[in-house]
Amino acid sequence: MATKTRPLRLYSKRFYHSYDHPAPGGPFPAIETSILRVSTPHIPTHGFTNTSLSLGAQDAGYLPASTNLFPRGAFSLVHYYLYTQRLALAAHTNITAADAVGENGYVMGVGGKVRALVWERLMANKAVVHRWQEALALMAQPSNIPTSLKELAALSDEIWFLAGDKSVDSSWYTKRASLSTIYAATELFMTTDKSADFIDTREFLDRRLGDVKVVGGAVGSVSQWVGFTAHAGINVLRSKGVRI
């Protein structure tokens, strides 16, 4: 019932991104933001729970009962976490710079930057990874799925944008869709990874990115071949005097 009476401003739809007139703040009002901000440090110990929220409310100088500001309960904390971590990616200017140098000493291409940014985003979860399955469970609740999916889509859009991808054709969609699936799968894999420095997760991520590269390359080659053959066929017919 509570969700009916006072919904948070859930999600500001992504529109034209203006540089002269930047859009005002995110999906959370000021008081909610102040509570959520100080709730985040409680996540490693108390998880994505109402306990973290009420501890945060106390830290911010409100009554513990102020958690009823959040009709979606602990999911608001998850949403805030996803939102702030997404925006934090822009601070990795060593990756997003045009002449950023990768681990191998060469200037990174768009693919390399995407890989590096995905890795940075995953590493941001390091402190809360033992609690991440709680967050995934909350995200998978039917009423929360729309917000979770939008956050995932916004994350992959952010990563492609920061990586400097400029494609604005159908590949805009396929790129975002494939990155979203890869990210979601890797994030899930990471929750069960016990290896040192998440080396297994890293290899998992590289295998997934490699798969996409292989499939994308094959599709690209086939369509190039079809296009070339069709053009050649038409030109042969034209040279024979057919009026097409």
């Binding site: 992504r14 034209y16 991104h17 203006s18 859009d157 944008f161 991808d165 400029k166 494609s167 604005v168 054709d169 159908s170 805009w172 969609y173």
Partner: peptide, 17 residues
């Protein structure tokens, strides 16, 4: 317009093909 779309993060039309 391709440049403007990329710069302002506007989604291209899904009807592209």
């Amino acid at each position: 317009f391709n440049e403007l779309l990329a710069k302002h993060r506007v989604r291209p039309t899904a009807m592209y093909p």
